[in-house]
Design a protein around this nucleic acid. Sequence first.
RNA 1: GACCCCUUCGUCUAGCGGUUAGGACACAUCCCUUUCACGGAUGCGACACGAGUUCGAUUCUCGUAGGGGUCGCCA
Length: 435
Amino acid sequence: MIRVRFAPSPTGDLHVGGARTALFNWLFARKHGGTFILRIEDTDGARNTEEASAGILKGLKWMGLDWDEGPEKGGDYGPYYQSQRKDIYDSYLAKLEALGRTYVEENGAVRFKFSRTAITVHDMVCGDVTFAPTEEPDMTIRRPDGSYIFHFVNVVDDIEMKMTHVFRGEDHLSNTWKHIDLFNAFGATPPTYAHIPLILNSDSSKMSKRDAGSAIEKSYMNGGFLPDAVFNYLCLLGWTPRTDSEVLDRATLTSLFEPGEIHSSNARFDMQKCTWFNAQYLRALPPLDLLKAAQPFLLQAGIIAIDEPVAAAALHSVREKVSLLSELPDWVHYFFREDYPYEDEVVAKLKAKPENSALLEAAMAAFAALPDWTESVVHTAIEEAAKGAGVKTGALMPLLRFALSGQSRGPGVNTIAFLLGKERTIERIQRTLAL
RNA sequence: GACCCCUUCGUCUAGCGGUUAGGACACAUCCCUUUCACGGAUGCGACACGAGUUCGAUUCUCGUAGGGGUCGCCA
């Protein structure tokens, strides 16, 4: 039975590196029907905060990385906060003491005596990596105040929680021999490791919490990204599934996931490509799902969508024009207010030719005479109005677009008119004629 | 400084001894078109360097250079 874990330390928000680490663990667990555990490594009281811990849970949930054991969930190997596991660590320390593998510093800190033998890490990504007997000083595993250090608790918990595999950042590879030394001391079998490549900024520096685009909540949740898109893009940073398309849903990514295919070289984060993925997912969203996803951004822009089907249809009509949910309000606001603003330069164009008013009036008359109100009927009416006025359809369309939306770009004019309804369409033309 | 990992278009990558070195994002041009987009087509663009192994290296080996990581009483 496969058991994997994501073990963040709550020193800040969930960032893309952490999310990708969690993602690979999650994929592996889900693919093999294993257990995905969330363990909060809050052993450093001075640096950990509850807000950060909550933020990490929030980010994971948003990404759809649900855990089987851990905070809010429980499980047979809890507690899942290391700050609550002191008794367990004490007993493991006692084992080490009994083995004569520890000694106490003058100030009370406890150190673990390295075996000082060659240690080989068998890694699913990097292959076998052998470290020569170390010359480093023995490592501290407990602070003078009695709290424990990462390397120690990490190993103890991986033993206690029966982890079978560990996917973690490659920054841990150089320390893994220390962990194996501990596993060996405890007479435990180390998990199978997979050290995954780091995510770098576009300038090749390691992406960390404070870098632009690193925070899941701030950059992606609040930035108008869809979780599926970020999930998809992050999968492709360090792993290439053997498929033609790169746009793949969770089920496909899960079934295709192979740890052995994970790259061993670092990857730079490309916000443009991540945004492109988002655009792909945005377009594929059914209207009501799009509305649901866009609601927070509409609300933020002061748009209250009362008529859900119409709002959904309005959003749907511009779905191919945007890449982010946050861009949607600018494209649809005029559907939700009668005092929509007019773009200045288009007002100038409209007034530049006196005959424009006559064209708009012709269109208005044609609309008024319509017994039905569908997109195609509206379209035909516009064509005929243009014909009757002796101009091309293409000359009338922009005028109507501007009258109905105040903008020079948007969905098809017949679509706008249809969604507004006959009455509002006529009112808007009148409002524009009065400019 | 020591040790570890890595090195194909600007970026993400395919390639696992013989390919016109393929795809995606971005960019450029054209087509489509009532706008903006979408979509379609085309183009631009890479094997870090040096030895060796081999009939033949992007591919294997070793160096060099470059990048990243680790060496905490952070995780």
